[in-house]
């Protein structure tokens, strides 16, 4: 019976990991946010792709298709670049709504969370 306990604990951890799962394609941006005293940013791909095709951000706006490779600063967003192309109170909410994007738990790492292979090996 003793030998089962290890498996049971492993099973519990397994179910815990899977029950705390972000939506597929959710990106956490935390290169600067927490260093500058704001919670990490969460970018949900699912929400945006209902409203915009990939090409809008990844072609017109110039977002690189790799988490962590875009050096986005708040100043650039305010100047209308990157997120600021739409988050300007015309197409989407403006930059004064800090909390709506900066809504992550403290200490999150910048990467794509959620998804099957993002939990295993890989470089996201």
């Amino acid at each position: 019976m003793q030998k089962y306990w290890r498996l049971i604990i492993a099973g519990m951890l397994f179910s815990l990991v899977f029950s705390l799962r972000a939506e597929y394609g959710d990106v956490v941006l935390n290169k600067r946010a927490e260093k500058e005293g704001m919670p990490p940013v969460i970018y949900p791909h699912w929400f945006h792709r209902i409203r915009f095709r990939c090409k809008v951000c990844h072609f017109e706006l110039g977002f690189e298709m790799r988490a962590g490779s875009n050096n986005v600063t708040m100043q650039e967003i305010i100047d209308g670049k990157f997120c600021g192309m739409c988050h300007n109170d015309e197409i989407a909410w403006g930059v004064e709504n800090c909390d709506l994007c900066h809504s992550g738990r403290p200490g999150l790492k910048s990467k794509i969370h959620g998804g099957h292979s993002t939990a295993g090996p890989g470089i996201w």
């Binding site: 705390l20 799962r21 972000a22 939506e23 959710d26 956490v28 919670p39 969460i42 909390d99 809504s103 992550g104 738990r105 403290p106 999150l108 969370h113 959620g114």
Partner: peptide
């Protein structure tokens, strides 16, 4: 979902 702050 494990990434949003529930208090946000």
């Amino acid at each position: 979902d494990g990434i949003h702050d529930p208090e946000s």
